[in-house]
Amino acid sequence: MVDEKIEEAKAALRIKAHAARAALPQADRADAAHAVTQHFFEHIPLVASDIVAAYWRIRDELDCQPILVRLMDSNQTVVLPVVIGAEEPLDLRVWEQGASLYEAGFGTLAPAELAPRAEPDIVLMPLLGFDKQGTRLGYGGGYYDRTLARMSKKPKLIGLAFAAQELDAIPREAHDVPLDAIVTEDGVRHFGPSA
């Protein structure tokens, strides 16, 4: 059941978060992506067997391509999401070394339809905003919510964002799974019982 008051509050926060992200100077974006990459590899534990779900940046999202390149160069298994329908979970396709990427809607790129699928151990999540409790404000389509609900295991959820995307508080509904950590150009913040 949808709580209309919460949805209205989230819609207002999305407008605010979009504006904050769009206002960031272009010159600072590459530096931020570089810093986020450094913080990610220094502070997020990875083992060789981990499958990492990443994303291909759209619009003015933080560019995680430097993380993707480094994961691929180290032979880490990487999956990229594909939207296959408005009410469907994301299709997580393995990006194999040397395989081409194709237009996958919304300005993203992804492996071909025949690529293998895999369930990730770590999910790098794009977002519009986050708060100090680890609540993630997405775009409102529910794709990650549906995808996480169908997984047989709970992966570590790592948000990637600019520090300017932090909001005071985001209402959290039952289906909103909190982040385990957020990585910004300012560093890494862990959430939850082990934080």
Rank of each mutant, 00 (worst) to 15 (best):
R146W: 05
A48D: 13
V188L: 14
E166C: 09
E185I: 08
K153Y: 06
A23P: 07
I15W: 00
A20K: 12
I182A: 04
M72V: 11
L137H: 03
S49R: 14
D91F: 06
I6G: 01
L68F: 04
H190V: 14
D50G: 05
I58E: 07
W95C: 02
R117Y: 05
I67A: 02
R59D: 12
L90Y: 04
A11D: 14
A11N: 13
V52Y: 02
I170N: 01
P116H: 11
V123L: 09
L167Y: 08
G105H: 07
S100Q: 13
A163V: 03
G187C: 12
G142I: 07
E166Q: 14
E166P: 02
I58C: 07
I44Y: 04
K156G: 10
A54N: 00
A22D: 15
S152P: 14
K156N: 11
R146D: 07
I58D: 06
V188M: 09
P25C: 09
A11C: 07
E173L: 11
L109E: 10
V36C: 11
V2Q: 10
R21P: 00
F191I: 05
H39F: 07
G142H: 03
T37Q: 08
Y144R: 12
V52D: 00
I122S: 01
G129I: 05
R172Q: 15
A169M: 11
A12C: 09
E173H: 08
Q76M: 13
G138R: 06
A22E: 15
A110C: 11
D3S: 12
V2C: 07
R136M: 08
A169E: 14
V2H: 09
D186I: 01
R70V: 03
A22Q: 15
A33L: 04
R14M: 06
G105V: 04
G142R: 06
L124I: 14
